[in-house]
Design a binder for these strands. Sequence first.
DNA 1: TACATTTGTTACTAACTAGTAACAAACCTT
DNA 2: AAGGTTTGTTACTAGTTAGTAACAAATGTA
Lengths: 199, 199
Amino acid sequence: MTTGKRTRIPREQAQEIILNAAEELFDQEGIHAVSVDAVVERAGINKMSVYRQFSSKTDLILAYISRKQEAFWTEWNLSLSKHPDQPREQLIQFFRDLAAKASCTDYRGCCFLNVAVEFPDTAHPVRELVTTHQRRIHDALLEMAEALGAAHPSELAYTLRLLMEGTYAESQTYGTDSGAIQMLPAIVEKLIDTSIAIR
Amino acid sequence: MTTGKRTRIPREQAQEIILNAAEELFDQEGIHAVSVDAVVERAGINKMSVYRQFSSKTDLILAYISRKQEAFWTEWNLSLSKHPDQPREQLIQFFRDLAAKASCTDYRGCCFLNVAVEFPDTAHPVRELVTTHQRRIHDALLEMAEALGAAHPSELAYTLRLLMEGTYAESQTYGTDSGAIQMLPAIVEKLIDTSIAIR
DNA sequence: TACATTTGTTACTAACTAGTAACAAACCTT
DNA sequence: AAGGTTTGTTACTAGTTAGTAACAAATGTA
């Protein structure tokens, strides 16, 4: 800026800095609302450094979503690792952790839902990432429902999906202390037990 | 346009035309993605005619949301009117109609969710409309849960809320034929009956 | 017919957008 | 030290955005 000396930042490091800045801004303010210049300023990095790494804003958004995808499965595995080989406890734990996250005041919802809303055109490249991610979530929930010994695994998986997406949506529309979100773990626990009992 | 003759449109009529055009575009493409000029073009009306009725784009958005609010309760009442004085049937009917709507290929989700996502700043005027609308929905669901004779009306209301919001979210992320949405009426029916049986 | 009001039209401002060209400075390898 | 590569800086393009000023044409009213 004002200094005569230039500070050079190598590629890999710059990419991290840019993606961190983009993530913060996209999460907080939305994607369309954040300009590339805003990301540049937040990252404290030069504009050309962005366009030398990401060919376009869309490219940057794709990288942002890919990162979020990885982060989701990291958290998923973290929840599951708390109760090895206990699918019922694992699933409840995941929803407990989800509720805790969605109750944070700075929580800005599920990035995949947000992206889907901000990019209504399903042919847009960013939507492909959303679609594959959702499919994987469904597969994971179905797998858990089967491992649980649910009477109707598919129905349980669908219901869990609705509750999960509902939590993401509520965190936006009702706010982070929606009441329903606090009750989520209990609701899921009861649902699972009912689903097993009917067997 | 090309005609020499000018066609004059009175205020009230113009307002309707503008709001119809805005609704179509906002629903289909999102709010930030639609410019005032795009609304003007779609409405086939002059730009000044828009700004003489709505002081700003925000003002137009507020009018759009207000209309959606009215439309929601019209549909709510329509569902309920199919089974007078039968709260269980009324509630199931509402979710049946919701699922049918959310299964349409051109369905673009719940406008209130979309607005919440597109306007993360809860202090923004449009968010007030969303907040009051969500509160009313909760009150209505709670009232129904009590009329049903649920063992724990509040818990049932919260769960129904999550399923409802989940449906809206799924219609975006999973698409209109998500599987879960088709199963929604059955899920709600079972949930209600379980909720009464425990009594 | 005369006048006030409403509406349509054109042209504009000022700010912001994504993306790029050209060059200067730093670094790395030899 | 020499030359190539990577990075920083500045300045720019061309398009879009919300919103407005000024005037022309149509309408209503007296």
